[in-house]
Simulated assay, not measured.
Amino acid sequence: MLINVPETVVADALRGMAAAHPELTVDVERRVVVRGDAPVAGKVALVSGGGSGHEPLHCGFVGPGMLDAACPGEVFTSPVPDQMVRAAAAVDSGEGVLFVVKNYTGDVLNFRMAQELAEDEGVRLATVLVDDDVAVADSLYTAGRRGTGATLFVEKLAGAAAEAGAPLERVESLARQVNESSRSFGVALSACSTPAKGGPTFDLPPGELELGIGIHGEPGRERRPMMTSGEIADFAVGAVLEDLRPTGPVIALVNGMGGTPLLELYGFNAEVQRVLSERGVPVVRTLVGNYVTSLDMAGCSVTLCQVDEELLRLWDAPVQTPGLRWGR
């Protein structure tokens, strides 16, 4: 592992992020990353966060057109309420703050407590829960579905609406719409290794894969002998479509879990596009790369978000963050 000691991994990464991205305000000590021009007058602010190890989610999505602040926890560990309250105070312009929360028990409890504390200090707050993973109904970390790839869609589309001046009620409503219009399914080809453990977090023998894995290495639907890229696409896209049942065009996210090269991800995307074409699902935009990761896990996930003209326009709106940027 390319680290000094496990205890300083997150702090070291935040120092490196601060050096690489002077347009951000990075508080290494108190673990908050804020866009440099915050608070932005007249704008609803978006705050998210979660355990580290999923980069560029969430800190890499801070900037114009997406998040106003992010709170990184320790690896695979929720940030604490104090971080979230501090982030909300730093970005609140008086127009309100939206918390975007992945459905993991620690995140849900801590963001809920942070909302109560921030509201006591006069911040107007709303919360949207992301729970897009169709693989399992409950997991080691959640009651209900896990929040995975759709987090990117919620943060991008709601972030664009906020950047355009939409009020808090509209930004919250749109974020809920995006979550409800999105579904994901992930596959692990290898286990991830946490800095603290220094080795695989679960046992996945060579020549096998886990279908429906979570972004912390949670078990999926089933374990099978290794499959081809086309076979994985058939299974993963089929699982998403069976649940989402889109009636219009979609944006496709073909996401790497951290240890899969782009050569393989683009090849997998070709198979994803084949399945969607065979199923008669029009794809209007596609994003391929490592966006919602699980440290060094080899594998991939597919997220589909059904969009209308408004959502497509918000997707195409400019975004300038370390992990996602286009336009302007």
Results as ranks from 00 to 15, higher is better:
residue 279 R to H: 08
residue 193 S to T: 14
residue 245 R to E: 15
residue 227 M to Q: 15
residue 33 V to I: 11
residue 282 P to G: 01
residue 116 E to L: 12
residue 276 L to N: 08
residue 222 E to D: 09
residue 127 T to A: 07
residue 161 A to Y: 05
residue 141 Y to N: 06
residue 183 R to Y: 04
residue 4 N to Q: 10
residue 227 M to C: 11
residue 108 V to K: 03
residue 136 V to S: 08
residue 14 L to A: 01
residue 172 E to L: 04
residue 28 V to T: 07
residue 272 V to Q: 07
residue 165 G to T: 06
residue 208 E to L: 03
residue 35 R to Y: 06
residue 104 Y to F: 15
residue 21 H to S: 06
residue 62 V to G: 06
residue 249 P to K: 03
residue 262 L to H: 13
residue 95 E to Q: 14
residue 94 G to I: 02
residue 67 L to G: 11
residue 159 G to C: 09
residue 4 N to L: 08
residue 216 H to K: 09
residue 91 V to Q: 08
residue 104 Y to T: 03
residue 235 F to Q: 05
residue 229 S to Y: 13
residue 25 T to R: 15
residue 231 E to D: 15
residue 304 L to H: 11
residue 147 G to R: 02
residue 208 E to R: 15
residue 80 V to Q: 12
residue 132 D to Y: 12
residue 224 R to H: 05
residue 162 A to Q: 06
residue 46 L to H: 04
residue 203 D to E: 15
residue 115 Q to H: 01
residue 249 P to Q: 07
residue 119 E to K: 13
residue 59 C to Q: 09
residue 161 A to T: 03
residue 31 R to M: 11
residue 88 A to P: 06
residue 156 K to N: 02
residue 120 D to H: 09
residue 40 V to Q: 13
residue 125 L to C: 10
residue 163 E to G: 01
residue 83 Q to K: 07
residue 275 V to I: 15
residue 138 D to S: 12
residue 45 A to N: 02
residue 142 T to W: 13
residue 68 D to V: 03
residue 212 G to K: 07
residue 111 F to H: 11
residue 150 A to P: 03
residue 208 E to D: 00
residue 71 C to R: 02
residue 126 A to I: 00
residue 196 A to K: 15
residue 231 E to K: 13
residue 60 G to E: 09
residue 158 A to K: 05
residue 144 G to H: 10
residue 134 V to T: 13
residue 15 R to M: 09
residue 32 V to W: 10
residue 292 V to G: 00
residue 168 L to D: 06
residue 54 H to V: 03
residue 68 D to W: 14
residue 120 D to I: 00
residue 292 V to F: 14
residue 286 T to W: 01
residue 5 V to I: 13
residue 252 A to H: 00
residue 264 E to K: 05
residue 153 F to W: 05
residue 284 V to W: 09
residue 43 K to A: 09
residue 294 S to N: 11
